[in-house]
Nucleic acid binder design. Structure first.
Length: 305
DNA sequence: TTCCAGGGGTAGA
DNA sequence: TCTACCCATGGA
């Protein structure tokens, strides 16, 4: 018997749900699904006791952006602890605990167009586990976006836990599931090229306790030291480490990739190709907020074209 | 068919 | 720290 449970999250102000779910491509990578028409997001998630549920996350009222609704579809009536787990995970995914007041104050002082940022922009969607964020980031390297989507889709379809009411809907696979697979089988099914070895190895190291990704996400270490830890993960280089720092809530590094280089060339260098060093000087005075400044500019640039 | 993508690992300077 | 070379995969 399908159960539906409605939950409400009251967010800190300012918050902009639409800007958060469309903040980057993560909303289009399974087990996340974007419904552009209703401006909502769906996610298939496994809870601690093992239950797989469907989360439909939406704006309760566009006039009151501080309220987020969550409709949970499940096979069994939800326990109170499961409701709390869902709220906790969504709080983390939407980064509702991040204090952006210092950044907003700088944007306000700079005036237009930066002051628009203070209308709740800058909370960039992430996954409930850092493992999922690391795997997805590795699958964005040296591949076009369509390729990334294909890899993650195959990973979820092959190895995610199915939702009982519709086995086509699956969760993001856990490191335990991936680590237990024979590598050849995993490699053949996910078709991630050389990335599959990195992800299989990472899963094994997580299961063996050799890498604690959740501790990295919440590490008190200075950014440069945390970056070294991230770079020690095979498959994570400069671009991926910068993306993961951003996902861990640190904005002092920029993701130098083909998107960054093309944007900088068009926006700041009159279509002449700058060196990476030259391009990086553009956001230097944003200090620990570099990535959010870059994110806002590129988000505006491609949404207004 | 060839090219190359939201790069990274490794070896060798 | 920098450079050269190789790396699977699939879309264009």
């Amino acid at each position: 018997m399908i159960q539906k449970t409605d939950l409400i999250i009251t967010t800190p102000s300012p918050f902009n749900f639409a800007a958060t779910i469309s903040s980057h491509g993560w909303v289009d990578l399974p087990p996340n699904y974007c419904d552009a028409e209703t401006n909502s997001m769906r996610r298939i998630e496994q809870l601690s006791p093992g239950n797989v549920v469907i989360l439909q996350i939406y704006d309760v009222n566009s006039d009151d952006p501080s309220l987020i609704g969550v409709q949970v579809e499940s096979e069994n009536l939800l326990l109170e602890s499961e409701k709390q787990e869902i709220l906790h995970k969504l709080w983390d995914m939407l980064r509702l605990d991040e204090d952006l007041s210092e950044f907003y104050a700088i944007c306000q002082k700079r005036g237009a167009p930066w002051d628009e940022m203070t209308r709740g922009y800058g909370r960039i969607l992430r996954s409930p586990t850092f493992f999922e964020d690391v795997v997805k980031t590795i699958c964005t390297t040296n591949v076009q976006w369509g390729g990334t989507r294909g890899m993650i889709k195959r990973l979820v379809e092959n190895y995610g836990e199915p939702y009982p009411g519709n086995p086509a809907l699956r969760t993001f696979p856990s490191p335990e599931v991936i680590a237990a697979l024979p590598f050849d089988e995993f490699h053949a099914n996910v078709r991630m090229g050389y990335r599959s070895a990195y992800i299989h190895l990472l899963s094994q190291r997580v299961v063996l306790g050799e890498v604690d990704l959740e501790a990295m996400k919440r590490s008190p270490l200075p950014t440069n030291e945390l970056k070294k830890e991230l770079l020690s993960i095979k498959g994570v280089g400069n671009y991926a480490a910068a993306n993961l720092l951003m996902l861990a809530g640190r904005y002092d590094e920029l993701t130098v990739d083909t998107v960054f280089r093309q944007f900088m060339r068009e926006r700041y260098f009159q279509n002449q190709i700058p060196t990476d060093k030259e391009a990086l000087t553009i956001y230097e005075d944003w200090g620990k907020w570099k990535y959010l400044a870059y994110w806002f500019e590129i988000w505006q640039y491609y949404n207004n074209q």
